[in-house]
Structure formats: C-alpha cells, structure tokens
C-alpha cells in the first residue's frame, strides 16, 4: 500500500497545479463561466472520478489546505482596515444595506427551502449562501450542515446574482452606482465585487467592505435566526 502521507502530497500538489492553471485561464478569458473555483472544481472532480479515487482519499491531502481557511478568513480584516475611510464615509448606507441583505437572504433562502420541505441539514447548508465561501464553509462547520453543498449554493448565488444584476438594475430604478456595489457585495460576494470593480476601483472597494461586513453580520445572526425554522 502507498502510505497516506504520499497520497496526501500528491493530492495537494495536484490541487495547486490545477488552481494555478485555472487562474491563468481566467486571466486570459475573464468570463463568469470560467471562474477559477468552477474550473478547478470540474477538473479535479473529473480526474478523481476517472481514476476512481473517493473523496475521502482526496481529503487526506485536501484537509491540509482546508486548515488554511481559518487564517484566510482572519486575513479579510486587512482589506476592511485598508478601506476604513470608505467604511466611515458610507457607514449608514453600507450598514443598512448589509443588515437588509443579510436578513432577506437568510429568511427567503431558508424560508423557501423549508416550505419545499427540505430537511434541517439542507436548511443549514443553504442559510449562509450570500456570504463569501471561506466564511460560509466555516459557518456551516460551526452550526452544522453539509459544507460542500453550502459551497455550491454560494457559487450559484455568486454567478447567478452577478449575471442577473445587469437585468435587475436595467429593469428597476436603481441608478446609484454605490447602491449597485453594495447590492452586489451583499448578494454575490467576491464574484459581485469583481463586477463592481469593473466600474471603478472605488466601487470595488465599497463592494469589498460590504462583502466582509455582510459575512460578519450573517455569521453573528444566523444561529439565532435559524431557531425560527428548526
């Protein structure tokens, strides 16, 4: 038998290579369909299925990378600090937007899933879908639920929300660029931020600050809101 340690190393190196290549691909062809996370995911799952490697075996190495999620979330304090002037200047709209978005997102997501009669595991997994994946995965880790399912819901919210945003903004009377950036940061996390960044660096920063605050707010209120449903 090949020792676990060796398998672990192969899985980590493989994941890193796929990640680097998918990032290069996205720099060449920046489309919401070619996001590094989506491409990496498809490539890794196809390779694992093709070689009949179960997920648990992959995780002998994968879990090492997973350990870096914690410090990764801590690192988000820096961009928040870096943009503290924007946070101060737009405190009221950003806070109101964050609270509105977080509450509507949790209530409609969990509410609709609960109406459709899904079990508690699914409700837990869908609840943090508006926040950035590392935080969503950590939230599910502490409240319960299925992390990978949660990560997929986050991805759908990101790609779907960003693609719907152009249509929604055109069809409604939402014209303020700041409001658009706050909406994108609240609903579609990093992918929404990338979209906001297209209009200007400043709008990208507004969206980033919103995304981080929304992650903090959702992780603090979610455990209590879920008590209404479960």
């Amino acid at each position: 038998m090949i020792p676990d340690f060796f398998i672990g190393i192969v899985m980590i190196v493989g994941t890193i290579i796929v990640y680097i290549l998918s990032k290069k691909l996205y720099i060449k062809f920046p489309s919401p369909f070619l996001l590094p996370i989506t491409v990496s995911l498809i490539v890794i799952i196809v390779v694992l299925s093709f070689l009949h490697i179960p997920y648990d075996t992959y995780m002998t190495g994968g879990s090492w990378l997973n350990h870096l999620l914690g410090p990764g979330v801590v690192a988000l304090a820096y961009p928040l600090y870096e943009h503290r002037k924007i946070l101060k200047k737009l405190a009221v709209p950003i806070l109101v937007g964050t609270i509105t978005g977080a509450l509507i997102g949790i209530l409609t997501g969990v509410g609709l899933a609960s109406l459709a009669d899904f079990n508690a595991d699914i409700l837990y997994s869908i609840s943090p879908k508006s926040v950035t994946t590392p935080v969503a995965v950590s939230i599910i880790e502490s409240i319960g639920g299925i992390q990978s399912l949660g990560a997929v819901f986050v991805m759908i919210a990101g790609v779907g929300g960003t693609m719907m945003s152009a249509f929604i903004f055109n069809a409604s009377s939402i014209t303020s660029p700041t409001s658009k950036s706050i909406g994108l940061g609240c609903a579609s996390h990093v992918i929404g931020v990338t979209k906001a960044m297209e209009s200007s660096q400043q709008q990208g920063a507004i969206s980033t600050v919103t995304m981080i605050l929304s992650a903090v707010f959702v992780s603090m209120t979610l455990p209590f809101i879920l008590l209404l449903f479960i």
Partner: peptide, 18 residues
C-alpha cells in the same frame, strides 16, 4: 492569503462529488 483564498476552499467544495 486573500488573493489565494480560492485555493483553500477547493478541498471542501470538491465534496460535492458525493
């Protein structure tokens, strides 16, 4: 860390294969 966050979320997300 922030610019490579995607790398650290890959392992948890691959679990979707189940």
């Amino acid at each position: 860390m922030v610019s490579h966050l995607v790398l650290f979320i890959i392992p948890a997300t691959v679990g979707i294969m189940n």
